[in-house]
Amino acid sequence: MITNIEKQYFINLLNRDGYVLNFSTYSFNVFTINSIGIALCNHYGLSKGKSLEAFLVECSPD
């Protein structure tokens, strides 16, 4: 289970003003498809950082 505090730490670690590590939008989508089965930027229609945040806010704590 991931807590809201842990989610925020995760967001702060990976999301730097919309940039997530050194991913391009394409490589981020490929990574998230391979990791969780969804291309986050395509799914949410947002930047990498905002898509990551939206996913973490929506995801189940289990």
Rank of each mutant, 00 (worst) to 15 (best):
S51E: 03
F23T: 00
L13K: 13
C41D: 03
S27V: 11
M1Y: 06
K7M: 04
V57Q: 15
T3K: 11
M1T: 05
N22C: 01
H43N: 13
A54P: 00
F10V: 07
H43Q: 13
T25V: 14
D17Y: 12
D62T: 12
L52S: 05
K7C: 01
F10H: 10
V30S: 11
N34I: 02
L56Y: 02
I2R: 13
S47T: 15
G37H: 09
K48L: 07
T32C: 08
N12C: 03
E53S: 09
D17M: 07
D62P: 06
N34C: 09
V20T: 04
S51Q: 02
C59E: 12
G45P: 08
A54R: 13
G37S: 08
E53G: 00
L40W: 01
L56R: 05
L14Q: 06
Y9E: 15
G45Y: 08
P61I: 04
R16F: 06
S24T: 15
I2M: 15
I2T: 13
I33E: 14
N15S: 05
F31I: 02
K48D: 00
L56P: 00
Y9T: 08
L13Q: 10
T25Q: 15
L56C: 03
M1N: 07
L21W: 01
Y26C: 01
Y19N: 15
L56S: 04
I33S: 10
N4C: 03
T3C: 07
Y44M: 09
G45H: 09
Y26I: 07
L52I: 02
L40C: 03
F23Q: 01
R16D: 14
S27R: 15
F31R: 10
L56I: 12
D62L: 15
N29T: 03
N4Y: 04
I38H: 05
